[in-house]
Design a protein around this nucleic acid. Sequence first.
DNA 1: TTGATCGGTTCATTATTGTAACCAGTGGTT
DNA 2: AACCACTGGTTACAATAATGAACCGATCAA
Lengths: 266, 266
Amino acid sequence: MGKSMGTVDKAFHLLSCFTVTEPEWGLSDLARRAGQDKATALRLLNSLMAGGFVEQDPDARTFRIGTAVLKLARVREASFPFLSLAKPPSERLSASIGETIHVCLPEADALATVHIVEPQRATRVYVDPSQPLPYHATASGLAFLAFASAEFVDHALSSTDFRAHTEHTITSREVLIDALAKIRGGAYAVSSSSFELETIGIASPIFDASGHAMGTVAAACLASRITPELETRIASAVTGTAIEITRALGAEPPARFIQSHRELGA
Amino acid sequence: MGKSMGTVDKAFHLLSCFTVTEPEWGLSDLARRAGQDKATALRLLNSLMAGGFVEQDPDARTFRIGTAVLKLARVREASFPFLSLAKPPSERLSASIGETIHVCLPEADALATVHIVEPQRATRVYVDPSQPLPYHATASGLAFLAFASAEFVDHALSSTDFRAHTEHTITSREVLIDALAKIRGGAYAVSSSSFELETIGIASPIFDASGHAMGTVAAACLASRITPELETRIASAVTGTAIEITRALGAEPPARFIQSHRELGA
DNA sequence: TTGATCGGTTCATTATTGTAACCAGTGGTT
DNA sequence: AACCACTGGTTACAATAATGAACCGATCAA
């Protein structure tokens, strides 16, 4: 990590090493991965264990995320319930534009879909709730990265594989960074058949109180239906819903974001 | 806090101040509550905010739990899914003894019911999933405290109100501490109409990898049905299920606990 | 005006931390 | 057996980062 960081930050850096794909670490492995000394890592882990944020397997001596996070997550959900706040606006959005809406939260190297609303309509896109959405290949991923913290983007970019899910997928870091800059100038991301053929995603970030993306709301549309005018109409509705959810969470989107949303409606 | 603690521990102490009943704190209030200097608390909060563990309301300048805990909780649930691991044993338990089973996790000053299984039986106890179970008045609460960490017990005892929910509720700290010691000598707690009249709770702790209680599993029985022999049979089944869930979570109950369970079966 | 809050900053003092070397144990090779 | 390359964990001391009383500017009440 080069620069000096506070010890608390280091502890969180350790925590961030535990992911869905690598939930358990031995001491040496973890210290190497986090770029920390074994002694340092162990001291931090002992504090984390005392707080219940990590546990140690009694036999294998491996470390894993502890139960304290469950408690805190319940406190957070009890006071600022993300899902129950995000659902009503998503349903209104789906009813208003007649397309499938999905809400996502970030995992280590992909987005996880946590809510889906399907419209009352014969033809509609099916979103698989169990499939992780890669950052480089989906509208949600692009919208999230465009408004995520610089550190998060660095980490996501360095751990993404740029796999081509279709012939339209962005497969190079440079192209992706350009795309993110463009998205940042507006308020939403579009992906035309870059993940599934015949589908167009239109996504916008939900912000936390620090002004960074903490999730996304997106419409998954049949490509055959989309015209430039319709895209703008949907984008306006999606960004409006993103603003609505962000405010319901007690946060406020950046002023530039609001401005871009207004220009869509005009 | 008197003695010196590591800075990471202080950061977690701050986090633990955020509860369901008090989810938002101003800087000065929080520093006072945590027994820390304002400057210290602010620096810790800044680190916590950088990690996403707390957020600050842009207007009110109050702090609250951030979204990072949701991410970690999802990692934990993806690798060691508590509910999906606890459900099957609970269902078997309910079927085997024919009583309502409920599984609880700790909140700040009460237990939260996170799963309920009702038996196929005309007469059974109804457990309200939204009602917090006070530590001093329920079998689950007693079982949890008896096997919780000393710090947790201290905190819980100092913040409990010892309210008498019925005429059988334990209402003094001394009696409670005695009861906990007795429970610790065995493997389960019984509460006879100490929370709801006509119901008897029989509860046992689920352990985390550090050997402390991280949750409970309990049977809520109609008092009129219970005999000493039946109580022992149910207690044996409940403690067995607690051991089963603990092991499914990748942890191991203390040897004394296992021994006490065996003696029940004999 | 005074005084008592609040959120946030400063800086000399002090305690924690990083570093590297060292244990003791384990499993595989020769 | 002897050796090697690991592992998890510990220790000493120099280097560094945390600490907290005092301080600032705002705000609010009397």
